[in-house]
Amino acid sequence: MTGKGVLVYGEALVDIVPGAAGHEREAVLGGSGFNTALALARCGAPVAYNVSLSRDTLGQSFLQRLAEEGIDQRFVGVCYAPTPSATASLDADGVATYRFSLNGTAFDTAPPAPADLDDFAHLHVTSFGATLGASGEAALVLMRRAREAGLSVSYDFNIRPAVLPALPEARRAVEERAALCDLLKCSADDAQVLHGAEFGYAFARWLAHGDRLLLVTDGEKGGYLLPFRREPMVFPALAQDVVDTIGAGDSFMGAFLASLWRNGGLGEVLRNLPNELCAAALSFAVVVAAENCAQRGCNPPRLEPPSAHD
């Protein structure tokens, strides 16, 4: 375990989700960056969040929740633009698709850059908040600074075609950020959107950059971790009674990073991570993601990751 924490960069927005049976839609706090920071905090890791929030009522709700969860707000900016939103539609399996409202919102304002990164072992950037527009450009600068400062860096693609630019430009933006990372996370759907059915070639290219980990989730099939020059680690999906899948990938990622933090797996060691730390992080992350899927919206459980040696 290291005393230095995790810095998370990525969007915060309100998810408009279907209510319980017979009820109208409800607004819940979400966004990939917020969800991941929430999961990290609930799994016991020290976490700071770098984001721009609105001064409106919904923005105040985010600030209140961050305080309640013990998430460091030093790098949260506040602006007068309204809170962005995403309206979720669920299919029969609880899998969500989204319609976004981003233009003219707090999403268009890049958050304040940390003056230094001395308090952190790891930077995690996620989704279109780290890929698109002014926010995405600020994320790229922060990732370069983190590499120079010796932090480990992870990136969750979380591809949302409706808000990204044309495919060639989106692919270039993703690959520019991927090149700065020690740990990449994507879903099988993300990979297919970016690279089609032959996405294995892109995976091989990402792994060829060096001692990099590639974490791939594939819904109800589970997923796999590809460590550099080692055998893949396959993990199952444990979710059974699925209410919805909102925030499942973010909860998985937050739990995975929290386990690495607890076991001293962040920072330089992530570039040559022992198999036992990989296995412990995967085992813990699938439990957290499964419990999140049993809730409406993103609501990861409060759990402490076990030691890799337990």
Rank of each mutant, 00 (worst) to 15 (best):
V288M: 11
G265R: 13
A279N: 03
E268D: 15
R271I: 01
A279Y: 00
N263G: 03
W261S: 10
P274C: 04
S251P: 04
L273P: 02
F252A: 08
G265Q: 11
A279M: 05
V269I: 14
G254C: 04
A279E: 14
R262D: 07
A290K: 08
G264T: 03
C278Y: 04
C278L: 11
A280N: 15
S283G: 15
F256Q: 09
F284P: 07
V269T: 15
A289Y: 01
L270H: 08
D250S: 00
E291I: 01
R271P: 13
A290L: 09
L270A: 09
A290Y: 12
Q295L: 00
E276R: 15
L277Q: 08
N263S: 09
G297Y: 05
G254E: 06
G265Y: 02
A258K: 10
D250L: 00
R262H: 14
G297W: 05
L257K: 01
D250Q: 08
A258V: 01
L266K: 05
V287G: 04
R262V: 01
W261A: 13
G267W: 12
D250I: 00
L270W: 02
A294E: 15
R296C: 12
C293V: 00
E268R: 14
F284Q: 07
S251E: 09
G264R: 12
N275D: 15
L266C: 10
L260H: 10
P274W: 07
F284G: 08
N275I: 08
V287C: 10
S259K: 14
L282H: 08
R296F: 02
A280W: 03
N275W: 10
E268W: 09
S251V: 00
F284Y: 06
A281V: 06
G264P: 11
G267S: 14
V288N: 12
E291T: 00
A281H: 05
L270S: 11
A255W: 09
G254V: 02
S283F: 01
V269P: 11
L273N: 09
A279Q: 13
A289K: 02
C278I: 02
S283H: 10
S283E: 14
E268G: 13
E268Y: 04
L260K: 11
L257T: 05
D250P: 02
G297S: 06
R271K: 15
V288Y: 07
V288T: 11
S259R: 13
A290F: 12
A279K: 14
V287L: 10
A290W: 07
G249L: 01
F252K: 05
A255P: 12
M253W: 00
V269A: 13
R296K: 13
N292S: 10
N275R: 15
F256E: 12
E276G: 11
L266N: 02
